[in-house]
Simulated assay, not measured.
Amino acid sequence: MPSPTEEPPGFELPLLLFAGFRALIDDLHAELARRGHPDARPMHGFAMQAIGPAGATASEIGRRLGVSKQAAGKTVDRLAGLGYVERADDPHDARRKLIRLTPYGLDMLHQSAEIFDRLRAGWVERLGAERVASLESSLRTVVPAAGFPVDVPGWFG
């Protein structure tokens, strides 16, 4: 760790950001397991966000995640096996199958949102409201305004 007058090495920033992300995600999944979602994994959350409230085809999910249609299909198969999604006929195109979130999948997303609020409150308790607000504001300044990408799985691949 650098002294207060030394600049930290540049590689430390992405590692700290990732470690903070990982700590939040690990805490989220531990709590989800206690709340009835023991098989939920980080990839599942990204995939369910890619599916969205209106549903999506496997091709759309693959594009949104930045992975192949086949990789998206495997993820959908896993989510369907866990009861988080279902396949349905697309009302606009009988040749396509639409992947939709089930009530169990919607519950996981709802529970995740509640847990993230609690985890953020824990950071506020440890760091103070001003520091957390400053951190969030600073990140909004440097993160592209295009929204929150769900293509992390493909990006890491």
Rank of each mutant, 00 (worst) to 15 (best):
Arg34Gln: 15
Ala19Thr: 08
Leu65Gln: 10
Arg35Ser: 01
Gly45Arg: 07
Met1Val: 06
Phe18His: 11
Lys69Ala: 14
Ile25Val: 13
Ser137Pro: 04
Ala133Gln: 11
Gln70Val: 10
Leu17Glu: 14
Val76Met: 00
Tyr104Ala: 15
Ala50Arg: 03
Lys74Asp: 13
Leu79Tyr: 00
Arg131Ile: 01
Arg87Pro: 00
Leu127Ser: 00
Arg78Trp: 13
Val85Gln: 03
Leu106Cys: 12
Ala133Thr: 08
Asp89Tyr: 06
Ala94Asn: 08
Val85Asn: 02
Phe18Lys: 11
Val152His: 10
Glu125Lys: 12
Pro91Gln: 02
Gly55Ala: 01
Trp123Phe: 10
Pro9Met: 00
Pro91Met: 03
Pro2Ala: 04
Thr102Ala: 01
Glu125Asn: 09
Ile99Pro: 01
Pro14Thr: 00
Arg87Val: 03
Thr141Glu: 15
Val76Phe: 09
Asp90Trp: 06
His110Gln: 11
Met48Phe: 03
Thr102Arg: 04
Leu127Val: 00
Asp89Met: 10
Ala72Val: 07
Met1Gln: 05
Glu125Thr: 12
Ala72Ile: 08
Ala145Thr: 13
Ser59Tyr: 09
Tyr84Ile: 04
Ala72Met: 02
Ala33Lys: 08
Glu86Arg: 13
Glu130Gly: 03
Ala145Met: 10
Glu60Thr: 13
Pro153Ile: 00
Ile115Gln: 00
Ala71Pro: 01
Ala40Arg: 10
Leu16Phe: 05
His29Trp: 13
Asp93Trp: 02
Pro8Lys: 05
Val132Thr: 01
Gln49Gly: 13
Met108Ile: 12
Ala94Lys: 14
Arg96Phe: 14
Gln70Ile: 13
Leu32Arg: 05
Thr141Ile: 13
Gly154Glu: 07
Gly45Tyr: 01
Gly105Ala: 05
Arg140Phe: 13
Ala113Cys: 02
Phe156His: 12
Asp89Cys: 07
Ile51His: 01
Asp107Val: 10
Pro8Asp: 04
Val142Ala: 14
Ala145Asp: 14
Ile99Arg: 02
His37Trp: 09
Gly66Trp: 05
Ser138Gln: 12
Ser3Phe: 15
Leu98Arg: 10
Glu31His: 06
Trp155Asn: 07
Tyr104Glu: 12
Leu139Pro: 04
Arg120Asn: 08
Leu127Cys: 01
Leu106Trp: 06
Arg64Asn: 13
Ala133Glu: 14
Ala50Ser: 07
Val143Thr: 14
Ser68Lys: 05
His44Pro: 01
Pro144Thr: 03
Gly128Arg: 01
Pro149Arg: 11
Gly147Thr: 00
Gly20Asp: 12
Val76Glu: 03
Glu7Met: 08
Gly154Tyr: 07
Pro144Lys: 01
Pro2Val: 04
Gln70Met: 11
Leu16Pro: 03
Arg96Gln: 08
Pro103Cys: 04
Ala80Trp: 03
Leu15Glu: 09
Ala129Asp: 11
Asp77Trp: 14
Lys74Cys: 10
Gly62Thr: 02
Asp151Glu: 14
Ser68Tyr: 08
